[in-house]
Write a protein that binds this DNA or RNA. Structure first.
Lengths: 338, 338
DNA sequence: TTGTACGCGTTATCAT
DNA sequence: ATGATAACGCGTACAA
């Protein structure tokens, strides 16, 4: 059932139907209603593929993250969705993709979104695209918005990772913690792959704080999380223990969910929090303040980040805007776990 | 840059390129490599739209939920994704949509997925499609898999909502709770719209348990959650209080997240849990056992549900299978909140 | 308002 | 057997 059949049934040309669908051109009210009625009666829905094929653009803003599911990612996505609803744009047009497991860099996915899917814009969370990909997007005029980090040639909404991490670790040190571990984003140890700048920045804040407090850095106190999952936290704590790191604190910039994994495993092992082990998470997701003990964490302005990213995408799609970098504040929220 | 240009550069027909892409037909190893090389060099990615347009099918399994973001939804989605990865099918081909805010029934979205997007299968979570939509899917041979509920003419993976809810509420009653409220899925009170069977079943379990314990049902003890959010829990508790329901327990089949909202609000108001108010959630999401107090809840076998739904979708896409209803066990997990 | 060409990969047909 | 050619699917841009 295609557009021409609908046209025939309505006694008009298929172009008129197309115009009705897109609110374009001019036609009599009567014609418009007739067309609408036939569409409804025949249960006609235009083929998205045909539309994309002919316009060369898909009216979709893609959202890309390392995984599909985590509280932090969910909350960011929800805020983007909320904003879309308010603005009444792309209400049906936000699609979520993950690079998880497939490839760490997201290179392939980003290429597909650009060349195969031809989306209108891409919002990236916690992933660092290569310079080549950024260039390709630029060349095709498709806006790229990074959340949590930034890169030359793309827009971004970010916070000061170094400062916030410093603050958290400095707090731990000032509280007398000496053996402070960190669970950071992937690929800290394996040197052959790139470390994501976001993680790197947080690691830097950690190291700076150690130095500022006269604590020497121990490579054995570093664990990596590949996908910010709960399980990564469980695993990390087990690894620390197996390695006899004997930590008295863990800073977990991989996020609250991973921190929850640590907390959960610690409880199972009878490790007292914060007595034996202080824990600081990252993000301040909904559950953080309800945990037992309530999680001390670094709050990111999640809702704002999502909304701003969406607005940036919209602006960039409409008129070509200069690269814009929006800096927001992240700050530590002290609760019970540290 | 289209397939014919690549063909020209590789010195073959565009059909050969197509065959290389799809591993079809037979061509010399040399030819294949040459084509592959040119594709890589020229950064060629086939247009998804053209592919869909010509085949009439999109190689995508759609996942539909009421919102994009909640721990429960996230975990279900993650398990589907995991399974896809294991099976090495639809790894790039799972797309997530939500009916949130747009329309409660999902009717429009389901139609779009079927007619506009032409997806290969749809997995629906916690939404009750109308009989007409189910029929349309049937007619077009596109598998529909319901999670958490079921309907004639579609596959489903579900648990016994009535029994599990009965068990939870019966537990509360046996513990001496007399004024037991419930926060169920949307549209309990507003009679003009359909109640989702899942919620209805859980409500039935609640009412059965009340009756079994000689407690009379109070309409004022029922609150509805429209999208299973944290905020809905906050609001629900406020409403109960404003209404002077004076509850001593709340059963929250709307899910753990909503239960967390209740718990959070209760803490703010100085209501002791479980002393003043016992709370039972639903789903047993990751955070449940880490809360303070740890949440007593009804465990759903989330990972299994997602995996089975994916497998069902796969099976149904390949060969036409009889309608299959898989029943799983949900059971109460007693922790501290009740 | 309407007719025509176009975008791009696939299926089916035909030639070597 | 392979490779080349033609037709098709379905909206949209643009000229008539």
């Amino acid at each position: 059932l295609d557009i021409r059949k609908v046209a025939k049934l309505a006694g008009v040309s298929h172009m008129t139907v197309s115009n009705v669908i897109n609110n374009k051109g001019r036609m009599s009210q009567k014609t418009r209603e007739k067309v609408l009625r036939v569409m409804k009666e025949e249960d006609y829905y235009p083929s998205e593929a045909a539309r994309v094929l002919s316009t060369g653009k898909k009216d979709v803003i893609a959202f890309v993250s390392a995984r599909l599911a985590s509280p932090f990612i969910s909350e960011v996505l929800a805020s983007i969705e909320d904003r879309a609803f308010e603005a009444n744009k792309y209400v049906y047009g936000i699609e979520h993709f993950s690079t998880r497991r497939i490839e760490s860099t997201g290179e392939e996915l980003l290429n597909r979104l650009l060349f195969s899917k031809k989306v209108s814009a891409v919002i990236i969370l916690s992933i660092q695209p290569s310079a080549e990909v950024v260039m390709k997007y630029r060349k095709k005029g498709v806006p790229l918005i990074l959340l949590e980090s930034s890169v030359i040639g793309a827009h971004s909404v970010r916070t000061d990772n170094v400062r916030a991490s410093f603050e958290a670790v400095d707090y731990l040190a000032k509280k007398g913690r000496k053996r402070i571990g960190i669970i950071a984003g992937r690929q800290i140890i394996a040197a052959n792959e790139e470390l994501m700048p976001t993680s790197l920045e947080r690691l830097k804040g950690y190291m700076d704080a150690l130095r500022a407090n006269g604590i020497t850095f121990e490579p054995g106190f570093v664990e990596e999380s590949s996908d910010y999952s709960f399980e990564d936290g469980v695993r990390a704590l087990d690894n620390f223990i197996a390695r006899k790191a004997d930590l008295d604190a863990v800073f977990c910039p991989a996020g609250d969910l991973t921190a929850m994994g640590v907390m959960s495993r610690a409880k199972e092992l009878g490790i007292k929090i914060p007595g034996d082990l202080a824990i600081i998470g990252y993000d301040d997701t909904l559950a953080a303040k309800l945990l037992s003990p309530a999680l001390t964490t670094v709050r990111q302005p999640i809702a704002q980040m999502g909304r701003l990213a969406f607005d940036l995408a919209l602006e960039a799609i409409q008129g070509d805007i200069e690269d814009k970098v929006i800096n927001l504040q992240a700050e530590m929220v002290v609760r019970e776990s540290a």
